[in-house]
Amino acid sequence: MVTIMILLQGKCGLSKCISVYLTAMAVADLMCLVFDVILFELHGIYYPDSFLDYTAICGMNFFLIFTSVECSVWLTVAFTFGRYVTISCQNLRTQYCTEKTVKVVIATIWGLSILENIPRYFVSEPQLITDNIVWFCIVKVSLYTEPVWITYLWIDIVFLTFIPFLLVLLCNGLTIKHILLTSRIRKALRGSDNDSELENRKKSIVLLLLISANFILLWMVILIHFICAQITEVEFLQTNHSNPFAILEQAGHMLQDLSSCTNNIIYVASQAKFREDLKMLFKYPLTLFLKVRK
């Protein structure tokens, strides 16, 4: 929420396009925290047997969880591609890197994510019926047997992990290649190692490598679990937490939630002006308190 507030002020020294992308990413990440961490993971510990356990509501929550996660992933991919276009494609930059185009891309990602995850609502069925009220959600057995559901799950995992992996690696790899090439040319022309521009480009390379590694490593566990579930008789959402596959699934979901947050933090916190605004935001209550005391 703090990230969204600072970005909306437009004082971070970022272009309008980058600010719009980062704000959209922050909103998607916030939705991941609300629907997955708070309404799904924590409510079972602190608010068991609440209205959130009605089958219709927990089914809707599944839909919102996967929609927000998919938006977070594809907004990261879109932003990575935008950075590649900005740095490496001078002719395409004037057409793609506009506020209108960015908003269209973001709206398209949200729309496609919603449509693609509608079947998620129908994946679960009631676990318990009490006084004509259906409680809790369990995964349908047909999810593992019917070809339609198996195909849907494979399509989902391909578009949620494999393709984003490849696109992030490809865009960042091409961007790094372009930076190294232009840096080599600049160094040859200037004939000096003391160049602030070269130092900035080195920092950009480290940032891009960090983002690629972070995205892939944090999604690797849940991808391994999904593949195991497809080639063995392992079930999703197991409640027996002594089962190794249940532990693997829970660890994968934890790292997946973490991935929804870290990319935005890496992108935004790397901006010096953002850090200054963040410091000012935290200092403001203390400053106000000291003024009141005087």
Rank of each mutant, 00 (worst) to 15 (best):
T3D: 02
M5L: 09
Q9G: 03
G10S: 03
C12S: 07
C17F: 02
I18T: 12
I18L: 13
V20Q: 06
Y21L: 04
L22G: 01
A26R: 13
V27F: 12
M31P: 01
L33P: 00
L33D: 00
V34Q: 02
F35D: 06
I38M: 07
L39F: 11
F40A: 12
D49E: 14
S50W: 04
S50M: 04
L52P: 02
Y54H: 11
A56Q: 09
A56F: 11
N61D: 07
F63D: 05
I65L: 10
C71K: 10
S72L: 02
V73R: 06
L75C: 03
F79I: 01
F81V: 06
G82Q: 10
Y84A: 07
V85D: 14
T86V: 03
S88T: 00
C89T: 00
Q90A: 14
N91F: 00
T98N: 14
K100H: 10
V102N: 09
V104P: 08
I109R: 11
I109Q: 12
W110D: 01
G111P: 07
N117R: 08
I118A: 12
P119I: 07
R120Q: 02
F122A: 11
V123Y: 11
E125I: 08
Q127F: 05
N132K: 07
V134K: 13
W135G: 01
W135M: 03
K140A: 06
K140I: 08
T145K: 03
E146M: 13
I150W: 06
W154K: 13
I155W: 10
F159S: 04
F159A: 07
F159T: 05
T161I: 12
T161L: 15
T161V: 04
F165V: 01
F165M: 13
L169M: 11
H178G: 07
L180W: 03
T182F: 14
T182Q: 15
S183G: 07
R184H: 05
R186K: 05
K187N: 08
L189W: 00
R190T: 12
R190V: 15
S192K: 07
N194I: 11
S196I: 08
E197C: 02
E197L: 14
E199T: 02
E199L: 13
K203N: 09
K203H: 12
L207I: 00
L208M: 14
L209H: 08
L209I: 02
L210H: 08
S212D: 15
L218P: 05
L218W: 03
W219H: 14
M220E: 13
V221P: 07
I224Y: 04
F226T: 00
A229G: 00
E233C: 06
V234L: 09
E235M: 10
E235G: 00
E235W: 15
E235F: 14
F236E: 10
L237W: 09
N243H: 08
A246R: 03
A246F: 00
L248P: 10
E249D: 09
A251M: 12
G252N: 11
G252C: 03
G252A: 09
H253R: 01
L255H: 06
Q256Y: 06
L258W: 10
S259Y: 01
C261S: 06
I265M: 13
I266A: 14
V268D: 01
A269S: 09
R275M: 11
K283H: 05
Y284W: 15
Y284C: 08
L288D: 14
L290S: 11
K291Q: 12
K291C: 08
V292A: 12
